[in-house]
């Protein structure tokens, strides 16, 4: 009697876990990326002051759970390329808490002074992105 109880309990528990896990997985896979909620799907590339830094809306919104106004409320303008034009868009400013540095301070997110190549994709990364882009837009050209 006891043994049957334990076995059935275990089966129920496993089934529940399976359903939950499957649902979670389905949610992760199937949830569409909504640009209105999460921002542009295409990565933002800054080439100034140095080549080249990548910013992914997806990682920060969908991934980290930030809302639009977390950044677009003083740190960054929504217009693309606006930060690049500003003379203070520098690592110094970021280290002092400006732009990315508001979160990338070592507390909220990894410090801007560390893991440089996490955002800096460099001239090589830029070249690779451009290549991938041109491959995507002109697939017929390769044939």
């Amino acid at each position: 009697m006891k043994i049957i109880n334990i076995i059935s309990l275990a089966i129920v528990a496993l089934l529940c876990a399976g359903v939950v896990l499957a649902a979670e997985e389905k949610q992760g896979a199937a949830q569409p990326y909504d640009e209105n909620t999460y921002g542009p799907a295409a990565p933002i590339i800054w080439e100034k002051p140095v080549k080249a830094v990548v910013f992914s809306h997806k990682t920060h919104t969908m991934g980290a759970g930030l809302g639009c106004d977390s950044c677009h409320g003083g740190l960054f303008e929504q217009e693309s390329g606006a930060a690049e034009k500003k003379p203070d868009f520098t690592m110094d400013k970021i280290y002092k808490g400006g732009y990315c540095g508001a979160c990338h301070d070592g507390q909220t997110a990894f410090a801007a002074k560390t893991r440089c190549a996490a955002c800096h994709i460099g001239a090589r990364g830029l070249k690779r992105l451009r290549q991938a882009e041109s491959d995507r837009t002109a697939p017929a050209a390769s044939h």
């Binding site: 440089c116 190549a117 800096h120 460099g122 001239a123 990364g125």
Partner: peptide
């Protein structure tokens, strides 16, 4: 090395 961001200004 860890500080290099491949801006290639050196190049």
């Amino acid at each position: 090395e860890a500080r290099c961001v491949d801006c290639e200004r050196c190049k």
